[in-house]
Design a protein around this nucleic acid. Sequence first.
DNA 1: TTACGATGTATGCGGTGTTCACATTAGGCC
DNA 2: GGCCTAATGTGAACACCGCATACATCGTAA
Lengths: 199, 199
Amino acid sequence: MPQAGGTYHHGDLRAACLRAARELLEEDGSAGLSLRAVARRAGVSATAPYRHYADRDALVSAVAAQGYRELAEHLAAAHPSPTTPDELAAVAVAYVRFALERPALFRVMFAEPCDPNSEERVAATTAISEYVRGMVRGAFPGADVEALSTTVWALVHGLAFLHLDGKLDTSTPDVVADQVRTAVQALFTAPAALSQTRA
Amino acid sequence: MPQAGGTYHHGDLRAACLRAARELLEEDGSAGLSLRAVARRAGVSATAPYRHYADRDALVSAVAAQGYRELAEHLAAAHPSPTTPDELAAVAVAYVRFALERPALFRVMFAEPCDPNSEERVAATTAISEYVRGMVRGAFPGADVEALSTTVWALVHGLAFLHLDGKLDTSTPDVVADQVRTAVQALFTAPAALSQTRA
DNA sequence: TTACGATGTATGCGGTGTTCACATTAGGCC
DNA sequence: GGCCTAATGTGAACACCGCATACATCGTAA
């Protein structure tokens, strides 16, 4: 009986599991995210979480979905509807910062194929996708929104992952931010260098 | 004694483990990549691999390093030294195709921080980094090589990951290739749309 | 009040990574 | 050739994991 002074029924074990999972993720990385550890932290038997999550993947999916929602908020906080390159760059910096501040969570979010089962997860990702689309629509009125959205998201997502994997310099947040801003700027200056070649 | 007709000593267990790990990765994904399974497949006791790899992570790092080398070959095969946007796009397509054809391997390669311990792994990644730099140098003689290399790599890497995570349409290889080409093209046409706004 | 459905527990199975003491063998040295 | 040592492989054991199954407890609604 893991519950010393508590009641038999937990009250809101579902939320408690999610919270415990997030804590474990921050403390020990994704390796420490085990159902048993979650149960221990929630002060509950090892199999209790199965009443609320079908299996480990279901819990992980829930964590990921929450991560998506927080990422969306984080981006919106950087700028609700950016329209200039500078504003767009600020959002890009926020994206990468989010990844670097919650590396394990970010990895969980993009670790495995988005199983179509978890509609919670799908909904959360399409929300982000829509946000990017709107951003591009505002910043590039004349462009192919679909194509450019993919480009922008991919660029920023790639920056986040390369930083996360230590493939780029992450010594200080400022260095990272500069790199991101420069990369986004390059989206607008690269052709100049090219035309220089062709002219 | 797992060895029925064989000798006590395996001969080249280190290489055999690597091969087995690669096979398991392709068959069952990264979930199936267990040290014990590797040992079973190599026809050896569960603890034998520890003579050649300090722990599971060491084996995984070796697999990743091999993956980096293969990726470098794959890119070079697409084009040894691209200088035009079209050639650059072809290499980008090859990068994404590599990821989609060996999803589990690609994930292992970029799953966890590149531990500075494994110099084998670091060497392999810097090789890729150098290849990208050279590519940018050739294609954009006037540009900031460092910044633009980061941009290009991030863009292509992000495309690979978003495809891998099912965030983009991956129905057919042609669709994917078109998307990648379009995204790379966007690197050159985006500012046009922008200047349209500003003019 | 009582019966039932929801929630949590206890137990057990097969799998995993890792350690440790031990067995076997290849290859250098006399 | 014969021996010794270091390298290599084995086996048993520990703690942990996900998960299934049977059982205990409790809120609640009839």
